[in-house]
Design a protein around this nucleic acid. Sequence first.
DNA 1: CGGCAGTTTGACAAAACTCAAACACGGTGG
DNA 2: CCACCGTGTTTGAGTTTTGTCAAACTGCCG
Lengths: 248, 248
Amino acid sequence: MPSSPDTHSLEMLVRRLESIATLSDEERQAILSLPARTRVLKAGHDIVREGDKPSHCCLILSGWAYRYKLIDQGRRQIFSFHIPGDIPDLQSLHIHTMDHSAATLTESTLAFLPHENLLDLTTRFPSLAAILWRETLIDAAIFREWMVGMGRRTAFERIAHLFCELYLKLQAVGLAQSYRCALPITQIDLGDALGLTNVHVNRVLKEMREQGLITLRGGTLVIESWDELIGACGFDPTYLHLEKRAAA
Amino acid sequence: MPSSPDTHSLEMLVRRLESIATLSDEERQAILSLPARTRVLKAGHDIVREGDKPSHCCLILSGWAYRYKLIDQGRRQIFSFHIPGDIPDLQSLHIHTMDHSAATLTESTLAFLPHENLLDLTTRFPSLAAILWRETLIDAAIFREWMVGMGRRTAFERIAHLFCELYLKLQAVGLAQSYRCALPITQIDLGDALGLTNVHVNRVLKEMREQGLITLRGGTLVIESWDELIGACGFDPTYLHLEKRAAA
DNA sequence: CGGCAGTTTGACAAAACTCAAACACGGTGG
DNA sequence: CCACCGTGTTTGAGTTTTGTCAAACTGCCG
């Protein structure tokens, strides 16, 4: 389990923040001088657990992660999937006790950023605070959309909607193009994310395949017909707030 | 529709923030000098709508509100219920286009706070920014818990869980005691919040009544047996993060 | 060549939904 | 004061979606 100080990893954070707002040289420099510690985790390992009081946030450099909660040792709800550039536990900066867990979905490289230094950053640079705050608000916007899905959409719509969402998020960071992307999510995970059983997910996936909407094999999602897919689930990307915000 | 400048309303905001962290005199003074404009809205009126680009946040002084989204003119998902002291659209401070709507549930008195002044406040006082940021993070924590409900809990558990949550939130601001509180939420609203039909909500409510867990009549909820109620839904209040945070 | 995790399929069961009608209740106007 | 109205609640009967259980199948990894 390698672990080393690493400054290059912070360039990813700079790129991510610059995709949201313009940074001043001073801000960029302050980010790059954060003391990051990089670590590689195997697939299926917890990053933080419910009840923990973490002292670091975790930036994903490579790989996928997810957040989840277990109730009575059998039922699991997945809240989100995370890809490189995300800080899945950014909320721990201001909420000291974890009310849920985060784990890797694939082998991942993670950079751990001390709360202390991040808090210092947000105090010195209110516009950086605003960008990070906004990131957590978009997180919440995605939660809301998942609520709409679980509360009011059919299994078919829910799955289609999630595929649209993930494709756009991957595309935004250059990890997807021409309606094709990696999707290292098992049908069990999909079920736990969407409030369905893996069996039912499987049946719906089969139907989507038969309708020529998508193919999902070997960890790769191919969207055969984007227009039909978004039509089938009423997808509207507004809630992802992907447009670059006006310069700070 | 009366509308007037009002400084007293801001004392409610001060009290709310002081229940979370200790404020300096300077901070308290800065909040009290925010230019608030108070307005009374009848029940069932939209406060902000999906697509709007609001220039104010809205502090609830009295009454109840809720946030929701409509899909294809028939299905509605409610995301949250809000009570006095809440700022249901605090997120609009950093997300400029509303991706959902907010409305009053009962006649309500609302204080509108200009984004401009709130942003100035967060820039001048990073510790106030932290408190408000934290409020939006708790909002998201509640979303996650609702996701657990809609994804992985039975209708019975979901309803019981919501009652526990609302009771504790009301109690925290002094609007509930001895297991009794106002609950101006129709069974239709409950269904739209929990991903159920009003018919099914009605049947489950009947069952809860028959089991002697609760009574709900005339807009008043009485929890007959708190211990059984939390037992029946596995309620754990951690996610509400109600404990006062360490002084800033 | 196993072995294990994940997928696929079938038969059946249950939770929740739909439609429809009756009922309660608070507010309004005659 | 009472009839009426609208909104919300309650109940019933039948349907649908999704879940459960169980077994077979696939594919990758050691």
